[in-house]
Design a protein around this nucleic acid. Structure first.
Length: 260
DNA sequence: ATGCCCTATGATATAGGA
């Protein structure tokens, strides 16, 4: 089975590239983030004709996540149980489903904006609820291959950003955010590290400053999986090709192959 | 030396991204 996660930065704006990528990469399960459209507006037909079932969860201008699967899609859950609100609303940032013998969550963790911003506390609280959800579900089915994949908006290690000295006052690398990741791993998940291509493990490059061509990237799109999942992994890589050319997302897909 | 982006929206600016 081939499973992938990709922050597409608007599924409608990215539709042509998404369809082309599905045809080329041939993933069985795909987690999408930043749909930037309502569930009802998700362009399902172009994806369905390629054989995928769709579980989309979006409410409009921002956020939005989805799971695509051509190996079954059942027990769909939208939002984390007890997911915290921001500014009075539960944002569409998580969708879970069982696909081809694995339980998978597509997550778009809040950005945090600035360390002293309300959004930062929201981010940490959101991670705590994600951890609780993972612990609960894995306790119910300990032998089920299980993976939380998506845009975590945290670089786990200093080597996951191009120049850590530029992140002194920034989110994405603070001890509290990394501790939240560690708490999540402590439920029994491990970071499935993609092969470094061109010596870089990055999954995101800002549109600004020619960041992609200068190697100014970050690894913030992660695959966190339990041992039933990781023991079956045969390969993992970042599809840098998807960041090239005309009209790319600012994130590249992370692809994982496994014997399942 | 400095700035160089992209998306969606009741839009001709703004918020958000990270």
């Amino acid at each position: 089975m081939r499973i992938a996660t990709w922050n597409v930065n608007s599924v409608k704006s990215r539709l042509d590239r998404l369809v082309e990528w599905l045809q080329t990469a041939q993933p069985d399960v795909v987690a999408l983030q930043e749909l930037k459209c309502a569930s009802a507006d998700f362009p399902e037909m172009p994806v369905q004709v390629l054989g995928y079932e769709v579980a989309a969860h979006g409410d409009g201008r921002w956020n939005g996540v989805a799971l695509l699967s051509r190996v079954g899609l059942s027990d769909v859950v939208r939002d984390l149980p007890g997911q915290p609100a921001y500014d009075g609303s539960i944002e569409p940032r998580a969708v879970g489903a069982t696909c081809g013998g694995a339980r998978v969550w597509s997550v778009y963790v809040p950005n945090g904006r600035e360390p002293d911003h309300d959004h930062y506390n929201y981010k940490l609280k959101w991670f705590g609820v994600l951890r609780d959800t993972v612990a609960m579900e894995m306790a119910a089915s300990p032998d089920l291959p299980y993976a939380v994949i998506g845009d975590f908006n945290v670089a786990p290690e200093d080597s996951d950003v191009w120049d850590i000295s530029l992140f002194a006052q920034s989110t994405h690398v603070t001890p509290a955010e990394r501790a939240a990741l560690e708490d999540l791993r402590a439920t029994g998940l491990a970071d499935v590290m993609p092969r470094a291509l061109k010596g870089e493990p990055y999954t995101f490059w800002d549109y600004r400053d020619g960041a992609f061509h200068k190697g100014m990237g970050m690894r913030i799109d992660l695959v966190y999986a339990n041992s039933a999942f990781t023991s079956r992994v045969t390969d993992a890589y970042v599809d840098r090709e998807a960041r090239k050319g005309t009209g790319p997302s600012d994130h590249a897909p992370v692809v994982v192959d496994l014997d399942l």
